[in-house]
Write a protein that binds this DNA or RNA. Structure first.
Length: 309
DNA sequence: TATTTAACCTGGACGC
DNA sequence: TGCGTCCAGGTTAAAT
């Protein structure tokens, strides 16, 4: 599933393949993929054609391509925003390559070179054109207007560890829930939350208000370690749903300690990894390295029975 | 106001 | 073989 490492891998690929190119034509094949562009497909196309992609930026799981205008050297005021959802792909394909089954948006460039395709099986992702606005904390930076509520991600040099620690500890919530809250810290999804918590030896149901500042810093260090390793591996691919812009899979799935490893030995202590239900998701952890906090040991928190078969 | 839950969506896996 | 059900999970509107 596309979390920060997968999105960063895509961003890096797009930067190499589309930055500096001018949009010649756009084809919207599935309206759901542009549902967040409320003005509709015609407006989206009109805002893209003739614009030059000046860069490829990212915050958390969001990507955007700032759009320059011919004859205007000023900073871009609009951008093409993309979110991959659960199964979205941004592919760079030679013109004439057979269409993918779930190809929803195609962008052709004036140089007749490889085209950009948005492919999405489950259509949770999408693209839109949005205004670029100054970030609340740094006026010199800009982000798409629709994602100003998204927090900086932990690999952002401007991420403030102390401010995050203070906000986290003020919350009356659970640690994993907080790590998945993109308005608090962005880029982390179910996979890397579980892997980070395992490295930090903390259970996801640990109450945030009970964490010391040192514990929060340990969690942040684990998160960064996992994310950086995953980026080096090109992301995590369980199936064909996540690939880079050239269609290649990442291989961080070989390094996963607990996620998807139910019943297999914990790499640290050998205890079988457990699976629990949490926030309508599966959570994986080590029963010994990550004991459940006693106060939240409720029937609902018990291990999920294995599916028969 | 802060926090939690449910719905959205598709296709593969599995049981019958 | 075919049908029904479960499951994956990021985001956000709705509920608590």
């Amino acid at each position: 599933m596309p979390e920060l490492p997968e999105v960063e891998t895509v961003r890096d690929g797009l930067d190499r393949w589309v930055t500096g190119r001018v949009v010649a034509a756009v084809e919207v094949r599935h309206p759901r993929s542009i549902r967040r562009h409320v003005a509709g497909a015609d407006d989206l196309v009109a805002r893209l054609v003739g614009r030059r992609v000046t860069a490829v930026s990212r915050r958390g799981k969001y990507l955007w391509l700032p759009l320059g205008s011919p004859g205007d050297d000023g900073p871009p005021d609009e951008c093409l925003v993309g979110h991959l959802g659960m199964s979205g792909q941004l592919l760079v394909q030679p013109v004439g390559t057979p269409d993918e089954k779930h190809l929803h948006v195609r962008v052709r460039f004036a140089d007749d070179g490889p085209e950009l395709r948005f492919v999405d099986q489950r259509t949770f992702g999408g693209v839109l054109v949005d205004r670029l606005v100054p970030t609340p904390d740094r006026a010199a930076e800009s982000v798409p207007a629709g994602i100003v509520h998204i927090a900086r991600d932990p690999l952002d040099p401007a991420f403030d560890d102390d401010a995050f620690s203070a906000r986290l500890r003020r919350r009356d919530s659970e640690l994993k829930r907080a790590l998945l809250d993109q308005s608090l810290i962005s880029g982390i999804g179910n996979i890397y939350a579980d892997e980070s918590l395992w490295r930090a030896r903390l259970h996801g149901r640990r109450r945030t208000a009970t964490l010391t500042r040192a514990a929060v810093i340990t969690v942040l260090a684990s998160v960064r370690e996992v994310l950086r390793e995953a980026i080096r591996a090109g992301g995590t691919s369980f199936d064909a749903l996540y690939v880079n812009v050239n269609g290649a899979s990442g291989y961080f799935d070989r390094s996963l300690a607990v996620y998807g490893q139910e019943g297999r030995p914990c790499p640290r202590c050998g205890t079988p990894v457990r699976r629990e239900q949490f926030m309508n998701r599966s959570s994986f952890s080590c029963p010994v390295c990550q004991p459940r906090p006693r106060a939240t040991r409720t029937p609902a928190a018990q291990d999920t029975p294995r599916r028969s078969g």
